[in-house]
Simulated scan of single mutants.
Amino acid sequence: MKVLDLQCRQGHSFEGWFASQDDYDAQRGRGLVTCPVCNDSEITKMLSAPHLNLGHGTAPVSSQGDSPSSSASPAPTRDEVSVDATTSAHSPAVPSEALQQMQAAMMKMVRHVMANTEDVGGRFAEEARKIHYGEREERNIRGQATREETEALLDEGIDVLPLPVPESLKGPLQ
């Protein structure tokens, strides 16, 4: 199993699991590897360090019985590896922890909206009006509306909020 750190053009980072490098290449070539946040299929493999479990013992002791030399540093773990951003002009920047937290918060919010609203599809503007004017029971809805429909709803005093929903969340929630 090959675990890859991936990133889309918008800078969203995510992890992908593949049977092999060939499997990743084949899926990416067919457009099957997409960002779970924005559905972008232009994906870049990020530099990552493998985590190697080389044993559970302590560091070896020298033949004189001394402790290991303090000048020798232990092998870096995945979290300790750093990459010089100047090594390649083509490698995207690693997102900051704050950006990753914002992405996670956005996905959590989108999942909450998806789980707590009724999808009315292309009838969104019509349903929003009926609810606003008391012709339908009040409930939380989501759906699609054109820019013109959205502006007309706002002009009528009907509060709406555009929400980009990743393709991966548009199907049934598990």
Results as ranks from 00 to 15, higher is better:
59 A>I: 05
34 T>R: 10
147 R>F: 04
97 E>T: 12
127 E>P: 00
34 T>A: 10
166 P>S: 15
142 R>L: 08
34 T>D: 01
106 M>N: 03
83 V>K: 03
5 D>W: 05
43 I>V: 13
137 E>G: 11
109 M>T: 09
95 P>K: 01
121 G>E: 12
10 Q>G: 05
121 G>L: 05
87 T>I: 13
13 S>D: 02
41 S>I: 00
148 E>V: 10
29 G>S: 08
116 N>K: 09
69 S>E: 15
75 A>W: 14
52 L>E: 08
171 G>V: 03
25 D>S: 12
74 P>A: 14
16 G>F: 06
102 M>F: 08
78 R>Q: 14
160 V>Q: 12
61 V>W: 00
17 W>G: 03
15 E>V: 14
86 T>I: 02
70 S>H: 12
106 M>K: 09
157 G>W: 12
121 G>I: 02
140 N>L: 05
83 V>L: 15
11 G>N: 01
18 F>T: 06
98 A>Y: 04
114 M>G: 00
157 G>F: 11
27 Q>H: 11
13 S>N: 02
115 A>G: 05
123 R>G: 04
41 S>H: 11
12 H>F: 06
161 L>P: 00
138 E>R: 09
14 F>A: 07
6 L>I: 03
96 S>G: 13
161 L>V: 06
51 H>Q: 09
126 E>I: 02
170 K>A: 03
164 P>E: 15
113 V>R: 03
101 Q>F: 01
81 V>C: 15
16 G>T: 09
9 R>L: 06
51 H>C: 04
88 S>A: 15
12 H>T: 04
55 G>P: 06
134 G>D: 03
110 V>N: 05
150 T>R: 15
17 W>F: 10
129 R>Q: 10
57 G>Y: 00
92 P>L: 00
35 C>H: 02
156 E>L: 13
52 L>A: 10
61 V>K: 15
39 N>A: 15
89 A>E: 15
31 G>N: 09
9 R>S: 13
126 E>D: 11
139 R>T: 04
97 E>A: 14
91 S>M: 12
45 K>E: 13
75 A>V: 15
4 L>D: 07
61 V>Y: 00
47 L>V: 04
81 V>D: 11
143 G>L: 06
122 G>N: 10
61 V>M: 09
170 K>C: 05
84 D>I: 06
47 L>R: 02
8 C>I: 01
89 A>W: 12
97 E>D: 14
93 A>R: 05
119 D>A: 07
45 K>M: 08
25 D>Q: 14
47 L>D: 03
12 H>P: 03
155 D>G: 11
44 T>W: 02
172 P>H: 09
109 M>F: 11
12 H>R: 07
38 C>W: 01
111 R>S: 08
28 R>I: 03
160 V>I: 14
3 V>N: 09
140 N>R: 11
168 S>H: 01
128 A>L: 04
15 E>N: 07
106 M>F: 15
149 E>T: 07
